[in-house]
Design a binder for these strands. Structure first.
Lengths: 130, 130
DNA sequence: TTCCTTGCAAATCGTTTGCATAATG
DNA sequence: CATTATGCAAACGATTTGCAAGGAA
């Protein structure tokens, strides 16, 4: 239980806090490796999981089979671009009202919901690429 | 492109239509195997993917690392029990209004959303188990 | 006879884990 | 010294894929 300091964990969290694009474990690994060459993927996974369990970071399971991590633990929604697969934050009013809608005809307790949006992101839509 | 008949595919779809609990590929395999002993897991996966691509069934990616399949392709929501992990259909009014909420401050096109609910299902809540 | 499907096994991918060693408190 | 953390490699679970053989049109 008692947590002991580790440079690798510090670097991992620091890196995550510097990014707002929700990197995958492997991207975290590739980057942190530049500061700590001998760090292992296993250590990255272990620390990401540990940090997520303690609520210091957020683990995003967006169904595409690869988890992403977010240092922003405040409640917010995400958007996934169907074209470039980027994941962006979505600042919007709470939609927790849908919980009441869901509860109306359900026999059981609904305590929360998972929601993400998709479409074409600003970059891809504006066609500044092609 | 042209699809040819196959008993395996027919049985897979038939089995899926007989269930409303959103079975995993492996569960489909275990069951269809009782009718077609030599069917392989690979064939089950291939057909589930094929049927999903053609829109004949729905593939549910609920983030837990194991896809589930649903023969009901009509738009509806799902509920996942935190206790028994069952997946249930949720009949409720459309909440597509959240798309407008999401669009308000977003630079890009939002074409859809993915939402599922979680909590304690009726069976687990009523405590008819313990 | 064409070419879609299958069975089987090997391959992939993301993630976890066992273990001996190193670092922290 | 008691524990927690690490690196490395092997293990895993779900899903995909290559290939030769089988079946539908």
């Amino acid at each position: 239980m008692a947590l002991k300091y580790s440079k690798q964990r510090e670097m991992i969290k620091e890196f995550l806090m510097s990014r707002h694009d929700h990197p995958t474990a492997d991207i975290v690994y590739q980057n942190v490796r530049q500061q700590i060459p001998h760090i292992s993927l296993g250590t990255v996974y272990r620390n990401l999981t540990l940090l997520a369990d303690r609520g210091e970071i957020q683990r995003l399971r967006l169904g595409d089979g690869t988890d992403r991590f977010d240092a922003d633990t405040s409640p917010h929604y995400h958007f996934i671009c169907n074209e470039c697969s980027c994941v962006q934050d979505l600042s919007m009013d709470s939609i927790d009202g849908i919980l009441d809608t869901a509860r109306q005809h359900f026999d059981g307790q609904i305590t929360g919901h998972m929601t993400y949006f998709y479409g074409i992101c600003g970059n891809c839509a504006h066609g500044t690429d092609s």
